[in-house]
Amino acid sequence: MTDPFNEAAASRKELIAEDDASGRIDAWLTAALGQEFSRNRVKALIEQGAVQLNGNILDSPNRKIKPGDTVVIDLPEPEDPQPKGENIPLDVLYEDKDLIVIAKPPGLVVHPGAGNWHGTLVNALIYHCGDTLSGIGGVKRPGIVHRLDKDTSGVMVVAKNDIAHRHLADQFADHGRTGPLERAYRAVVWGRPRTLAGTIDAALGRSGADRTKRTVKREDTDDAREAITHYTVLERYGEKPDASCLASLVECRLETGRTHQIRVHMAHIGNPLVGDQEYGAAFKTKANLLPEDAKRAVNKFHRQALHAYLLAFEHPTTGETMRFEAPIPADLQKVIDALKAM
């Protein structure tokens, strides 16, 4: 069909049947709308009286469509689902009336969103904390002042009231430049950075090829945002006489906090994270160079090898500097142990 939509309003779609239109109207609508609506969703809209055929409300999904028919769908305004508490175990490192610090496991999404309306950290926090969570972060992100990717593990702090939320959010916005905020990660990367310690200063922005990904951008690009990562090589695995190696354990400290920052920056200097399917997929075959035990461990590891092991910040009420560490999760530790044993 050619250009079937005429959206007079955001909640209305108008379609005109072409010369070859035939069959049940619910099947025709489903095909016309493509992946936007399932057949069950189309039937539900018809039963709700939200579909008109030639100016009359459609009363049945099995009516036949004819060439030239005009079909109008009035869509209900999208609702912003309010997360519900779910009994999901939390590894609580510290908690008081102002905040809670947890060790997030890999595989746990931080807040609800498209495709992840349930089973998130926010659902777990609502169940655990009840009505004490801050509302500043919005309905879907109560108390959240920073986040970790789904498959990144590590320490997170969550505010339990509005005052704590403001105070913590200001610290994260300052990136520790004038206060005690400190964030440090452990990452296993392919190869070895050119220098054993260094700073990656490369602006980041959305990728033109995939809007969910980030890429290094020129600083004069419209969406370029400053991004600075400091790294130190802690261990080298499979080191060769020329000082190169197959993989390294690296500590990364953030001076800024951009989406996917460490993952993009390490890939940018030629050392993507082991297991990173988005930014290190081209390096997947590097596992074939490893001894059998290490190769098996790496191939069984299906996430980016990144762990936020350290978080320090100023307590919003007492002013005390709080410092928390989380041990490396078992799945990542197995990879490190296998690489060490080479």
Rank of each mutant, 00 (worst) to 15 (best):
Q35E: 14
A227H: 11
A287V: 09
I25S: 01
D131S: 06
A281S: 12
H230I: 03
T30H: 10
A187T: 03
L339E: 03
H128A: 01
K340Y: 04
D276G: 02
I100G: 02
L181S: 01
E182M: 09
A243D: 15
P316Q: 09
L33G: 01
R12I: 10
A114Q: 10
G49V: 04
V335D: 11
S38R: 02
N299P: 04
L148S: 02
T221L: 11
F301P: 02
E95V: 05
Y127I: 00
A203H: 15
D242Q: 02
P316F: 06
L181N: 00
D91E: 15
G68M: 08
A243Y: 13
D19W: 07
V335F: 06
A103H: 15
A27H: 10
G34I: 11
A159I: 05
N161E: 11
A243F: 12
D149L: 14
A305D: 06
F283Y: 08
T232H: 15
D210E: 13
I136M: 14
N288W: 10
N271E: 08
M156A: 02
D210K: 15
A187S: 09
G319T: 04
G23L: 11
A17W: 11
A282Y: 13
K213W: 05
Q333P: 05
L311R: 08
L90H: 04
A184T: 02
L93Y: 12
I46S: 01
D80M: 11
A227D: 08
E325T: 10
A243T: 12
V71A: 07
R236V: 11
D276I: 04
D149P: 03
G208R: 14
F172W: 12
T2A: 10
F301W: 12
L29Y: 09
V92T: 14
A297P: 08
N56Q: 14
S22M: 09
P272N: 08
E235I: 03
I100Q: 08
E278W: 11
T132Q: 10
L332N: 00
A209N: 15
V157C: 05
R263Y: 09
Q35N: 13
P272C: 05
S248C: 08
P4T: 06
D331W: 08
L58G: 00
S60C: 07
E292K: 15
P272G: 04
D276V: 03
P329H: 13
H230G: 02
I46F: 07
H175M: 06
D210S: 13
I16K: 04
Q333I: 02
G270V: 06
D131P: 05
G191M: 11
R183M: 03
H111I: 01
L58V: 00
V298L: 14
